[in-house]
Nucleic acid binder design. Structure first.
Lengths: 243, 243
DNA sequence: CGACCGTTTGATTAATTTCAACATCTGTGG
DNA sequence: CCACAGATGTTGAAATTAATCAAACGGTCG
């Protein structure tokens, strides 16, 4: 059993190590960071649009999302976050939040001053580089979402979003058949794909019918990962995973 | 009359200066950069998805876009670029292109090795910071596009996209009434908003009818900039312009 | 002039939303 | 342990939005 702050540091180390590889010195520097730990229920706002933000937030366990709201009240989720993800690295350089960060499940998160991360980046250029790469990959994902929502039909769109979630969680194992929990309500999938919950329900049904996957009670079973990716027009290049 | 490479440096200086303000030393460092100048026709590919990229490209005049294509052939423009914009700063850290860069009009562009920009960033941390801020603002714009395409109806979507273009071109003057050239075909607007050209045409008509703007031959006349922004649900905060 | 590209318009079709009802699951307090 | 309330999931029918198909119009360039 390690302390909660150490666990946050551990998650961050794993993530950055995956991105560029870390030396012992850099690992130690990250391990020395102090995170303020917070246990929050589902649907808790971590940052609101317009806030001036001086703390970065890392997910230790649970899930969170980033979303924006248009005038008529429609909500669009623009990103999902999971263990190890830093929600708002951008606040290292931009203080004003232009959207909302909210947990989607019960979660454990860690907070650390943006100034502390700036200092870390100055002292360890490779860590600064890893932060920058993380931001660039996020941007690449946003672009794929624009394509997904703008040009793919509802069924493929939902399948693609699920593929991306799986690809980001799986981290490297290459099983063709597996099972996992989908920690989203159909309404959250709808808000992420620009559809309605009702239509997402029908598309999940259609995907199940054609054997893309089986699902019940939020449990998703993939019998043929390659096939699902084909159905979803999913090509993971845009995730820029360490090969 | 200055040399073309110097003009590229000039545009870049203006842009970075707008983002964070530059010292004389930094300006001189940018002025010392050598750009390889290229005059290209409309619809020229500058980078293709899958390319390994070792040069960054800056627009000196004309317009370009970034786009992705889905399996069925649908094209989605995910960003527009104009004079002073660096198209692909991301290749300073990611070598693989995950989408296409293409001019939309005849254009003059300047190329410079990513390694040269990395060196510049190492020698001038403030320039590195300006690069990072530019990337972060781009990411913020992608997120707004996800919202725009995912949740706003066609008319507002088109109006919003036009507002963003105007806001990025206007740079600070606060006229309420003005006129400008829209350098896009209706098909390009369609590819950027996730609609068809036919429907864009009808939405432009509807916007004209309700007095959002007048337009003919690609010339756009705005009589009430505030009103257009209201119609478009356009709030420029996400552009993070230097206030 | 004629070909081509982009724009405009109308009619029809397809995809998705909306509305409404009901079913199922989950957590909580009695 | 059960009953209940609230949230989530499911289904059907109608309404709406946007796409598709098709044709004509307008300017531009060789």
């Amino acid at each position: 059993m390690i302390g909660a702050s150490a666990e946050a540091a551990q998650r961050l180390t794993e993530k950055l190590d995956r991105l560029i590889g870390l030396t012992t010195i850099e690992r130690d520097a990250i391990a020395a960071l102090q995170f303020r730990i917070e246990y929050v229920p589902a649907h808790t706002y971590l940052v609101r649009e317009g806030d001036t933000v001086t703390q970065c937030c890392i997910v230790i366990n649970g899930y969170a999302c980033r979303h924006k709201v248009e005038r008529a009240g429609g909500r669009q989720i623009v990103a999902f976050y999971m263990a190890g993800d830093i929600l708002n690295l951008q606040h290292i350089l931009l203080s004003k939040a232009d959207d909302n960060l909210q947990t989607t499940t019960k979660a454990m998160v860690g907070w650390i001053a943006t100034e502390r991360l700036r200092q870390l980046g100055r002292e360890h250029p490779c860590i600064a580089k890893a932060f920058a790469i993380d931001v660039l990959i996020d941007a690449s994902i946003f672009r794929e979402w624009v394509l997904n929502i703008g040009r793919r039909d509802a069924k493929i769109r939902v399948a693609h979003m699920i593929c991306e979630f799986i690809a980001r969680r799986k981290t490297l194992d290459t099983l063709s058949s597996f099972s996992m929990t989908l920690p989203f309500t159909q309404e959250q999938i709808a808000d992420a794909t620009g559809l309605t919950a009702v239509h997402v329900n029908r598309m999940l049904r259609a995907l199940t019918d054609e054997g893309a996957f089986a699902h019940q009670n939020g449990q998703l079973t993939i019998s043929d990962w390659k096939k699902l990716q084909t159905i979803a027009d999913f090509n993971p290049g845009y995730l820029h995973e360490a090969a």
